[in-house]
Design a protein around this nucleic acid. Structure first.
Lengths: 196, 196
DNA sequence: TAATTAACATACAGGGTGTATGTATGCAAC
DNA sequence: GTTGCATACATACACCCTGTATGTTAATTA
């Protein structure tokens, strides 16, 4: 009979926190934030609502924590796949592909592109993925569009628009569109944007 | 003393329906869909919840009716501002400007670009604004990109991406960004997309 | 080992949604 | 015009969900 090793409070908290986050994630991506009651979340995690409200201020704070974890994972996934020394154009194309790869994880599109902005607001979402390396695209575009001699303000706006195109493409792919079609469209879009 | 002319059931229904829709619109754009309770909506309309649930199946159906009305207004506003006989490029640029004008009406960005997709889902939103002349952009792009000899499928994808850029620009302008900056960026984006 | 605090579970209060029921007015047939 | 039915609401109710307050056990600290 294996001894049920006495766990420290720290690791106890960690495991329940992630248990709640994992259960919430599964239910949120299935039914959405508003339609997922907290009793169902904690039941799926084998806990009670007392644990939830001990670790998170309220339901929205739980959602925020989940979104932040997801954004971190996307950022690190993209970062992990970048190789140094690529020319600006190829770096952009590779970054786009890495983004689509990361967003292909089930539920990410709904969490980060649908429920996230609606529940937390666009402002907070912008803050979150700015905190987790969301500026990669802008830097890449600055490098690739340098020959055009634009103001930084203009390039920034273009980066916003391009990232919107990325997001829409991820949305469409998630909805069942062929990835190849949108990968082609995105590549073409990038090529025309950075053409001197 | 003016006689309070006895109204027919039809006009009675119409006025209360729009009263509820107007009240809901004001509250939804102020606090969002989820944070706006139905008692507050009907109170603002000088009615009770009985009227609401008589005219709409549930709260979401009310929201859907509101979104459809808003989408109709945007579509007709854009359509009203189009002039015949413009060359493809100028037609696209004018359409973009008309779209930004239409989306400048307070609350439209939140209703159509934030709460709409979150509450109704992207699929239903796509259906709604496809039903109300949402294909204008695609047709414009087909005309303007004809010289490139692309497959229709590819042009369709490009139209999706471009419309995503439009939406993001409207979002940013609504959040306080300078319209001129994004108008310039959109124009530049269009120009590069349709360049032979 | 005694005291304190963290990590939960349980119990409760308030509010919101949807539905069932009641009422008055418009409308249509005779 | 009055009899009967449908429409347009208002009122009342049951359920569920959220957040908070309180209780309990185990870990940490003195």
């Amino acid at each position: 009979m294996q001894q049920k090793h006495r766990r420290s409070n720290r690791e106890r908290s960690d495991t329940t926190r992630t248990a709640i986050l994992d259960a919430a994630r599964a239910l949120f991506i299935e039914s959405g934030y508003a339609e997922t009651p907290t009793p169902e979340i904690v039941a799926a995690a084998g806990l009670t609502r007392g644990a939830l409200y001990h670790h998170f201020q309220d339901k929205k704070a739980l959602f925020r924590a989940l979104i932040e974890r997801e954004a971190r994972e996307v950022a690190s996934s993209i970062e992990r796949s970048t190789v140094e020394g690529l020319p600006p154009r190829e770096a952009l194309l590779a970054g786009a592909a890495a983004y689509f790869d990361a967003m292909a994880v089930p539920g990410r599109v709904r969490l980060l592109l649908l429920d996230g902005p609606a529940v937390l607001g666009v402002g907070e979402m912008a803050t979150i993925d700015a905190a987790h390396g969301g500026r990669t695209l802008e830097e890449g575009l600055v490098a690739a569009m340098a020959p055009q001699g634009l103001e930084k303000k203009a390039i920034k706006a273009m980066a916003f628009l391009l990232s919107a195109a990325f997001d829409r493409a991820a949305l469409e792919i998630d909805a069942g569109a062929a990835r190849a079609d949108y990968a082609y469209a995105i590549d073409r879009l990038i090529d025309r944007l950075i053409a001197p």
